[in-house]
């Protein structure tokens, strides 16, 4: 297991360097000048423009800028936002918990609903439930998040008044950040009303963000289950006279979970991409909204650092998935 872990970690370094290179190039290929975003309407004179470019190091050749950036990174310095002048890492730390909370809620929603739907659809293959579940999940998979979010807001928040339209918590609650995860912070404060408000605010965004992973997980579980249910060892288990619940829940599901875990791991990338839209619709103060603002303001350091940090998160989650995969399937640890 240790060599498996070391192997995976060794692969991380080139991945991360590759990410720094691509984020750097992508951000600098973006049209627009960050200094333009700092200028009032009346503009600034060319000397001041040149001076600002020099201050931000933008007057140097790209390669020089990149090497300088790598040096900074090696010292754990992600740079400072051109706009707010605050360290990128500090800004990331304030917005990241909101995204984590939303993503965890979305994934939990997707798994809790997706797994049973997939299993039942597989057991009732060709039945009404199977068809209904698979067509609904296909619809969910193709749903434009922005439109889906607005639709749910109009129904549940505006028409029915069941959930708040947007935000993370009711405006009456001023919870000082401890972990940044509002569900935990409000629980730590022991404020039941604030906790309830935070849960209320989390429901719609989590459902919207979890819709695509839910559809993926349901479809993946179904096909994995179908494959496993047809294997010899399941027939043997049934022949032994084991209860159907035990055959499905223990013998079949464990093996069917292997591809599903991979899908969940990959879904983290999808989730973070979806979070950009979901956070915009629900005014959710997370990483997605922060990055969109940075794009609009051409805040290069925030974009570079932010995308890198998000990429590191995705890589870390995938590493975790690989480890879980290894736990689930001994053949994988032995193979490496």
């Amino acid at each position: 297991m240790l060599s498996f872990l070391l192997n995976r970690l060794a692969l991380l370094l080139p991945t991360l360097i590759g990410i720094t290179f691509f984020t750097f190039i992508l951000v600098h290929l973006m049209p627009g000048d960050p200094i333009e975003m700092l200028m009032p309407e009346r503009g600034i004179d060319p000397e001041r423009h040149a001076q600002l470019r020099a201050e931000l190091g933008l007057d140097q050749p790209l390669l020089v800028q990149y090497v300088r950036y790598l040096k900074q990174l090696a010292h754990g310095d992600f740079g400072r936002s051109i706009v707010t002048k605050k360290p990128v890492l500090e800004e990331f730390a304030t917005v990241f918990p909101a995204t984590v909370e939303l993503s965890v809620a979305a994934v939990s929603f997707a798994i809790l609903l997706g797994l049973p739907i997939g299993v039942f659809a597989a057991l009732n293959r060709g039945g009404l439930f199977d068809y209904a579940a698979m067509s609904v999940s296909l619809t969910g998979y193709s749903m434009p998040i922005f439109w889906w979010g607005l639709l749910l807001i109009l129904l549940f928040s505006v028409q029915l008044g069941w959930t708040p339209v947007s935000g993370r918590i009711g405006i009456f609650y001023d919870v000082p950040p401890i972990t940044g995860l509002l569900l935990i912070d409000t629980a730590l404060e022991g404020d039941v009303a604030a906790f309830t408000s935070a849960v209320h605010h989390l429901v719609l965004p989590a459902v919207v963000l979890g819709t695509i992973p839910l559809a993926t997980i349901a479809r993946m579980t179904r096909s994995a289950m179908l494959e496993v249910l047809n294997t010899e060892y399941i027939r043997t288990a049934r022949a032994k006279g084991l209860s159907p619940v035990r055959v499905v829940g223990v013998h079949a599901l464990r093996n069917a979970l292997i591809p599903v875990v991979t899908v969940v791991g990959l879904a983290v990338g999808v989730l973070l991409a979806g979070a950009i839209l979901t956070e915009t619709v629900f005014s959710w103060p997370g990483v997605g909204k922060w990055l969109v603002d940075a794009v609009n303001r051409r805040d290069f350091p925030v974009l570079r650092g932010g995308i890198l940090l998000v990429a590191v998160t995705v890589v870390a989650v995938n590493l975790l998935v690989d480890l879980v995969y290894g736990l689930l399937d001994p053949r994988i640890r032995k193979a490496t």
Partner: peptide, 20 residues
């Protein structure tokens, strides 16, 4: 006085209607 930051115009309108 509270500024509730709501970048999307449609969402802001929904909040207005919902009394938020």
């Amino acid at each position: 006085l509270i500024f509730s930051i709501t970048p999307d115009g449609s969402v802001a309108y929904a909040k207005l209607k919902a009394g938020e």
